[in-house]
Design a protein around this nucleic acid. Structure first.
Lengths: 705, 303
RNA sequence: CACCCGUAGCUCAGUUGGUUAGAGCAUCAGACUGUUAAUCUGGGUGUCGACGGUUCGACCCCGUCCGGGUGA
């Protein structure tokens, strides 16, 4: 099998015969796979849907043609789409199928496909047939450009990853019937098919027998029929027909599972560890009204990095590992207790254990307010206002009372409660809540959240804070004005604990490349580790010392080539060496030659010197952005960029961000803007013309000093 | 640069135009810097100067040809050059919105309304190449224009789609599982319910409104359906100009090597830097309030 | 046909960030001086050409027309 040229799109013929609900998941899948150029063969009715998503579609036949036809299945008369389904499922008209195949062959002869995928309604009959049309058909699952793991589950609801060699390697050219036989599977009788169609979630719900549709991880979905009808009314898709979840732990008693398929999946999983069949994510039947199925929020996996927002307005990072504990209130809790929680979930303490809670439960409001004007003119603080003593509180706690209950009791026990004003009551509650109702919220460690956490944490340390904290909105500006995007090559200098480098890497993704230049002994990857980056993404971040980069960038080209040759020779010599030493110089030279798509600099060194060293490594028409705490050094760098003719659209700004409290009739700016938000310098590099006049006609007077 | 490319023309710091290259001999871009033939762009790399065939020499001789810089489009540059159909979301705000929506490659994001498409391109950059932006515009003409414009600007239908639809009345269509949603609507509170249904639980929402009254109603609607981490911010930007330091001192300059040099180093009268930054007077005023929140983790009615 | 420019009584405001609430002239006021005047200082109710339209919204938006300029 010849190696494929990965730069060329993979031409895939996808044969999707079925209702729109069958076609849509595949169409959506293909439309977001880069480097896959699909041609979708479908019913005429689905052509518009596919073409709207920018893909080629070929209509094979129309349902209209079959409208008049009807057949009788198990006593029921099937017409229209039902007839087509029956036709497909039970192969009532194989001659027409051959016509379709002929049509596809026609396209294939005109311009060969790399791969052919076949989906049918009738999974239990033939799950999926992949036809190898040419000798050079690659195995998609081994194609790095369609790495299943890179596809976020939540982004692709009705997603099939059809690259399932073990299950789906039947050849269409052998025909349906033969394929089934080779797979050792019996063809379903009409009666069995009809029986099966009764076991839908909706039918189950009607019968009142709730079945959980959440398959424990790992989940594998092997069949679907999603109907998009009536979506405008419901605001979302709902599943009308059958779903089959084949998982190692699948237990549905009243339905005969395709044990063979499940076994095949299990065997495959056992062999390969993880298989990239991503599907429905997890779906959950909503308990109200119709049996709508909804996706779940992203959940925490063991080993994940988690960001916790806490009740005392701080953030902390924990890893969901058995050895890690964190504090909530005064209690130590194991981080693994958070596994399987949704990101965004709130937790509080009850009986010294974490229990999930909601924001409403945390917002305690006691009794209806009586608006009598009150103040503390009559208050005489004798410290005897509280009738509840410490032992009573301890007792309540040990009985496992909720924090809310304790606070309620405290308010009841407070002699001065009724004399408090509304504002002081609110304040009192807030103070008590901090003590008796601690909470944490698990947050997904995204660039914005991590930047926020580092910023808040650094600000909280006061004068003793070390390093620098970059405000989240400044990070946002760096990414935007640097035009950092997926697949980009970016040179980063980060003196902000790696917050900037992490944000850049998150944006660049696995197909991007990040070169992190460091100023000291080693790169500060502190914050980078807090992201839940995949190994591939972590591998996309290279590091090198900034001074080496500076040396290489100021070296003439010829000398640089000579160095490369030297390094190559040295590498050839120590082929036996198990661990070749990292050659930072070579890395830097490669980056200088390949040219980056963006420079994102947040140095603690003089920005101008960093700029001079890194600018040669930037591709023309691409942007450089520099973050700095101080205006003056950036002003000097600004002047150099503008006056040297290296760049246009040189912009030096300071970003202000202000929070607002929004409540009815009580909206106002929330807190003073945080000082030292830092400054952002950005510019776009241009091809410099040495014979071009200096940008300024009249020479500037040289500044004094 | 190739035929059909969208090219950003840099004519000055805040004078940016755009051009679709049609390399026939008739297409000419005319500006105060002279006349630029489309064919002269083709084959040159982005970031190059392109020289005028004629004109541009204001009163000067022919030896000084005018030139402009041709740049590759970015969402920020496009926002400066695009044909306005509505007021646009400024790149400053757009950057903060994209950050708070936790966008990255592969995410699916909803937008309404499309407007002039400035925000759309910012969103598309963040989720490209495997994610998607589904944009909805309730004005038919604008929706049609945007739908034509996006593919032309290198945003294929597999990445960005624009549909004519009033999301306040009709919701977000087939979408049921988006990761984030951005609302730029006169009455966003009418759309938050639809938005929540169109997104996965725990998805992110951002709303863009110029008035506090709008924000207040939106926040109320968001809390009503159980959104968490509701936060409203305003972002502004102060821009600086840099000039050489031309300040002269009242005091005579101390000759170098004077003994008071030591004292001077420690005190405030160290020499000023060579360049001084001055805030530009035209700081952009208030644009809008940005409201963010996390959508409920569970659909309503679920325990 | 395309592009640029229309603001103070007048005249202007830079070929790539000195650029549309900024000036110069004129004028007026004050100060000063061997006073038909010079010098210095200070001052300004500026429809941002006109009219429409567009934007929930800040507009650096669009159209038509008028006047001036530049280039095909």
């Amino acid at each position: 099998m010849a190696a494929r040229d990965e730069t060329k799109p993979l031409r895939v013929a996808a044969i999707l015969i079925g209702s729109l609900g069958d076609v849509a998941p595949f169409a959506d899948l293909f439309s977001r796979l880069p480097r896959v150029e699909p041609t979708i063969f479908c019913l005429d009715e689905a052509v518009a849907y596919v073409e709207k998503r920018g893909m080629a579609a070929v209509g094979l036949f129309s349902i209209e043609t079959w409208k008049e036809n009807e057949t009788t299945l198990d006593g029921a008369t099937l017409t229209g789409m039902d007839f087509v389904k029956a036709w497909i499922r039970h192969m009532l008209a194989p001659a027409t199928l051959d016509d379709c195949v002929a049509k596809i062959r026609e396209h294939h002869v005109a311009r060969p496909f790399d791969a052919l995928l076949y989906q049918t309604q009738a999974f239990p009959v033939v799950p999926f047939v992949k036809i190898e049309v040419t000798e050079s058909v690659p195995n998609l699952i081994r194609n790095p450009s369609v790495d299943c793991a890179s596809v976020p589950t939540c982004a692709m609801p009705y997603l099939w990853h059809a690259y399932y060699e073990t299950v789906f390697t039947l050849l269409l050219e052998n025909g349906w019937r033969e394929a089934c036989e080779r797979h050792g599977r019996e063809i379903e009788t009409p009666a069995q098919g009809y029986q099966r169609s009764l076991h839908t979630p909706r039918a189950a719900a009607r019968r009142g027998t709730r079945r959980s549709f959440i398959a424990p991880r790992p989940r594998y979905l092997i069949g679907n029929d999603v109907c998009f009808s009536d979506c405008a009314a419901t605001g979302g898709a709902h599943v009308l027909a059958h779903d089959f979840l084949a998982t190692p732990r699948w237990r549905v008693d009243d339905e005969a599972p395709d044990a063979e398929a499940a076994a095949a999946v299990e065997a495959f999983v056992a062999e390969h560890g993880r298989v990239g069949l991503v599907c429905f994510g997890s779906m959950r039947a909503r308990g109200v009204g119709e049996a709508y199925l909804f996706l779940e929020a992203a959940r925490i996996n063991p080993g994940d990095s988690i960001l916790l927002a806490t009740s005392n307005d701080t953030y902390q990072f924990v890893d969901a590992k058995p050895s890690v504990k964190f504090r909530i209130g005064k209690q130590q809790v194991k981080a693994t207790d958070l596994v399987d929680a949704s990101f965004g979930q709130l937790f509080t303490l009850q009986n010294k254990a974490l229990v999930p809670t909601t924001r409403d439960a945390l917002n305690i409001t006691l009794e209806a307010s009586n608006n009598n004007k009150k103040d503390n003119r009559d208050l005489d603080d004798d410290n005897k206002a509280q009738s509840l003593d410490a032992d009573a509180i301890k007792d309540m706690r040990s009985r496992g009372e909720t924090g809310a209950a304790i606070i309620g009791a405290l308010a009841e026990g407070s002699a001065t409660w009724d004399s408090k004003t509304e504002f002081s009551k609110a304040k009192w509650l807030k103070r008590k809540a901090k003590k008796y109702l601690p909470w944490v919220q698990v947050l997904e460690p995204t660039a914005n959240a991590i930047a926020e956490a580092y910023f808040v944490r650094a600000a909280g340390k006061g004068r003793r804070r070390k390093g620098r904290a970059v405000r989240p909105d400044a990070v946002a500006q760096l990414l935007a004005r640097g035009n950092v995007r997926a697949g980009a090559r970016v040179v980063v200098v980060d003196a902000c604990h790696g917050v900037v480098a992490g944000a850049v890497a998150e944006r660049c993704g696995e197909r991007g490349n990040v070169l992190l230049l460091y100023e000291g002994q080693q790169a500060t990857m502190d914050a980078v580790k807090k992201f839940n980056f995949s190994d591939a993404l972590r591998g996309a971040i290279a590091t090198a010392p900034a001074d080496v980069f500076y040396a290489e960038s100021s070296r003439p080209e010829a000398e640089s080539l000579a160095r490369d040759a030297e390094a190559a020779a040295a590498a050839a010599e120590r082929t036996e060496d198990a661990r070749p030493r990292r050659d930072h110089g070579a890395t830097c030279r490669a980056w200088l030659r390949a040219r980056a798509h963006a420079l994102v600099l947040a140095p603690s060194l003089d920005p101008l010197s960093v700029l001079r060293a890194t600018l040669p490594a930037l591709h023309p028409s691409c942007a450089v952005v520099v973050y700095g705490d101080h205006l003056e050094p950036l002003a000097r760098a600004f002047a150099w960029l503008r006056d040297s003719g290296h760049a246009v659209r040189v912009q030096l700004t300071e970003t202000w961000q202000r929070d607002f409290q929004i409540l009815e009739n009580r909206s106002h700016p929330d807190m003073a803007m945080t000082a030292n938000a830092g400054y952002v310098l950005s510019a776009i590099k241009v091809v410099r013309e040495d014979d071009a006049e200096p940008s300024r006609k009249r020479p500037r007077e040289e500044p004094e000093g | 640069m190739r035929q059909g490319d969208l090219v950003i023309l840099y004519l000055g710091h805040d004078n940016v135009d755009h051009l679709y290259l049609t390399p026939d001999n008739f297409s000419i871009y005319n500006s105060k810097f002279g006349d630029f033939h489309h064919v002269d762009f083709v084959g040159k790399p982005f970031g190059s100067r392109v020289y005028a065939r004629s004109g541009g020499g204001r009163g000067g001789g022919d030896d000084k040809k005018g030139w402009i810089v041709a740049l590759a489009p970015t969402p920020e540059l496009w926002a400066m050059a695009l044909p306005h159909r509505t007021q646009i979301v400024q790149p400053l705000d757009a950057a903060v919105v994209c950050a708070h929506l936790d966008l990255r490659d592969g995410k699916v994001v909803l937008e309404s309304g499309t407007g002039s498409g400035a925000m759309t391109s910012c969103l598309a950059r963040c989720v490209a190449p495997t994610g998607r932006v589904l944009s909805f515009e309730f004005n038919g003409t604008r929706a049609a224009k945007a739908a034509v414009e996006f593919p032309r600007n290198g945003l294929p239908a597999s990445l960005v789609t624009c549909e004519h639809r009033d999301v306040c009345a009709d919701g977000f269509g087939d979408a049921a599982d988006a990761d984030a949603v951005f609302l730029d609507l006169p009455e966003p509170w009418l759309a938050v319910g639809h938005a929540a249904r169109a997104c996965r639980p725990g998805g992110r929402l951002a709303s863009y409104s110029p008035c506090v009254e709008q924000v207040a109603r939106t926040c109320a609607a968001l809390r009503e359906i159980g959104c968490d981490r509701v936060r409203t911010v305003e972002v502004r930007e102060k821009e600086f100009d840099v000039r050489p330091n031309a300040l002269r001192s009242l005091e005579p300059r101390a000759p170098d090597g004077e003994p008071d040099a030591k004292r001077r180093r420690a005190e405030a009268d160290a020499p000023l830097p060579g360049f001084l930054a001055k805030p530009l007077p035209d700081m952009r005023g208030h644009t809008a309030f940005l409201t963010f929140c996390t959508l409920p983790l569970r659909a309503a009615g679920e325990t």
